[in-house]
Design a protein around this nucleic acid. Sequence first.
DNA 1: AAGGGTATCAACCGCTCGTAT
DNA 2: AATACGAGCGGTTGATACCCT
Length: 333
Amino acid sequence: MREIMSSFSKSASTSTSSENDSELRRGPWTLEEDTLLIHYIARHGEGRWNLLAKRSGLKRTGKSCRLRWLNYLKPDVKRGNLTPQEQISILELHSKWGNRWSKIAQHLPGRTDNEIKNYWRTRVQKQARHLKIDANSTAFQDVIRCFWMPRLLQKMDGSSSLSMLSQNSALVSGQSLQQYSAISALPQVSSQQEPIDIVSAGNIQRFDHHELNSSDSEHGATSCISSSESMNISQISQFSDYPTSPFHVTNSSADYNTFAKDFCQFDNTCCDMETIPQPENMPAAAAAGEYFGNPVRGFQMEDNSWVEYDLADSMWNIDELWQFKNSSLEKGT
DNA sequence: AAGGGTATCAACCGCTCGTAT
DNA sequence: AATACGAGCGGTTGATACCCT
């Protein structure tokens, strides 16, 4: 009903000048139009849209028919929310190709360029606005790469998701997989004594044990962007084997919570406000029991059980998020 | 319950590109 | 080589849903 009304009002309001134009329908498609289009394509195939528009009896432009078919009626069009895997793919591919929506869509079976474009504009750009960062800036790309993607990975079902990703090389490149795995692996990696290669954006940087444990933001979250060696398969699988952190952190500052909330709402099915990136190297004050003037009591597990704060098991440094954001802002835009 | 603000997404528009003539 | 036309792409708009006060 709503559709019919809006369709009516729209076509009425746009009926204009030429007789041709006034015959053309605009706005939302009706069930009858959809049926006509589907039946016509079933009999004659898609393509030659202008001809299709004339012969099918639809009072639509060829363009409109094409769009309706490709974005909505085509049988293999997937409906519903984008999965975390798909979101990661979009983020990854967008960082590679920019606003090449159709190209990105080719790597997401069943998803349309329009859908991906909408996702980017409504979800991703919104977050950039909240953070007051240009969505196309390197700073924002860093935020996505170093915080969001690991979050999405965490959302995915650990190893099964990783193997799923690695099997689907068309969706996410090996490079990205290494990168995310490396980030997720930080706590475990940092407990080893051997130098570790961290991969990001196709680049490698080798870290010593003490560097990974340093609170210096150069080697913390921001360390995921650097250098130039290449990485072999065994190193990749080494990272892929590390699970993501199961911890949540609570009781941090209001400012940080605001940021984290924005961050997590990027995918509102991803995590709630309390699913905040885990401190990797809590600063002295926090380790001593407070952070930003607020007490830090420990962490809540995903099953809601409480765990006392344990430096060795932590993953993210709270202030690194802010340091990271600020330093990215300084050098990025 | 009402009203205002915001998010979402289908659809449109203008432009470019490729191909046929 | 020039032109016309169809197809596709990316940006934008507008209607509706949803949320918050």
